[in-house]
């Protein structure tokens, strides 16, 4: 088991390396001189030259990359052009807020998505099932940012049940979490239904039913754990993308997380922050997927065997 985990970690190193190369290249091909955008155009030549040397911009490309790589490995993601604060420090400051939102969204998504997915799978091809599936597809097709605005308007402004925007106690968390989680809830409902339908046709379910086990026991104890593997993938990848992709939700609700931080940087064209955030989030995303993959191995020994062989 540990061997499997170590192998998966080892395999993800080239991916992270690739991500670092792409973020580096991306910032390199951006039109415009980073030093000019850093100090403005009114600075004199000598100061600009000084800064170029400081940032190693006069060195050949491969040397610049090595310097960048070295810094990244030491956790130095550069400094903001605007506040001059280390990007890493700001990111770590905001990570807990984003993580809290992501966890709440995931909780909502699993509760609703898996719940209605199971209900749907127990009554396949009925009106209830069709209705749930159309609702789920509508949830996937609704733009997150629009849904957030409408929820804030309806529950925050018209009904005044919850604060429409802002950051604070639990009541501030509810609307953003629903907004962020609804898409996954819809997706999870679809996956859970499909996976449950698959499992419910298996022989061991028939066996369990023929033993006259109560139906809830058959569903929750025999079918659900076996149907859960594809569900976990979705939970894992979505959670990873929440940690990084809450840009829209955070900007609508004024949530002080990483997504809004990234968006602010983009609007101010603060390139080190953009670069640092994209890289940081990609690494978080890869790590989340890695954890899911390892979890897979823990849950299902077949996958452990299969993937270890595949890697050889």
């Amino acid at each position: 088991m540990i061997q499997f985990a170590l192998k998966r970690i080892w395999q993800s190193i080239p991916v992270i390396l690739g991500v670092i190369i792409i973020t580096f290249v991306l910032m390199y091909i951006i039109p415009g001189d980073p030093v000019i955008s850093m100090v403005g155009e009114r600075f004199d030549e000598s100061r600009i030259e000084e800064l170029r040397n400081e940032l190693h911009l006069n060195e050949p490309l491969w040397k610049q990359f090595l310097v960048y790589m070295g810094n990244v490995i030491q956790g130095d993601f550069g400094r903001s052009f605007i506040t001059d604060r280390p990007v890493m420090e700001d990111l770590l400051d905001k990570l807990p807020n984003t993580a809290m939102l992501a966890a709440a969204a995931m909780f909502f998504a699993v509760l609703i998505g898996v719940g209605i997915g199971i209900i749907s799978s127990l009554r396949p091809n009925t009106i209830l099932d069709r209705g749930i599936m159309i609702f789920a597809l509508a949830g996937i097709s609704t733009p997150v940012f629009w849904l957030g605005l409408m929820l804030a308007l309806f529950f925050g402004v018209y009904l005044q049940w919850l604060p429409p925007t802002g950051f604070g106690g639990l009541e501030y968390l509810i609307l953003p979490a629903i907004t962020l989680g609804l898409r996954s809830a819809a997706y999870l409902a679809r996956i859970t239904r499909a996976s449950m339908l698959d499992v419910l046709n298996k022989d061991y379910i028939r066996t369990a039913r023929s033993k006259r086990l109560p139906e809830w026991k058959v569903v929750l104890k025999h079918a659900l754990p076996n149907a859960f593997i594809p569900v976990i993938t979705v939970i894992g990848t979505d959670f990873g993308s929440y940690l990084s992709g809450a840009v829209l939700t955070e900007s609508i609700f004024g949530w002080p997380g990483i997504g809004r931080f990234a968006l602010d940087a983009i609007l101010k064209r603060d390139f080190p922050v953009i670069q640092g955030t994209v890289l940081f989030m990609a690494i978080v995303f890869i790590c989340a997927n890695l954890v899911v993959d390892i979890l897979y191995g823990v849950i299902d020994p077949r996958i452990r065997a299969e993937r270890s062989n595949h890697a050889n």
Partner: peptide, 16 residues
Amino acid sequence: FGFPALLFLIGITAAF
């Protein structure tokens, strides 16, 4: 696949 899609898109479009 390692990049979160939307953030990556935002980063690219913001550069131009």
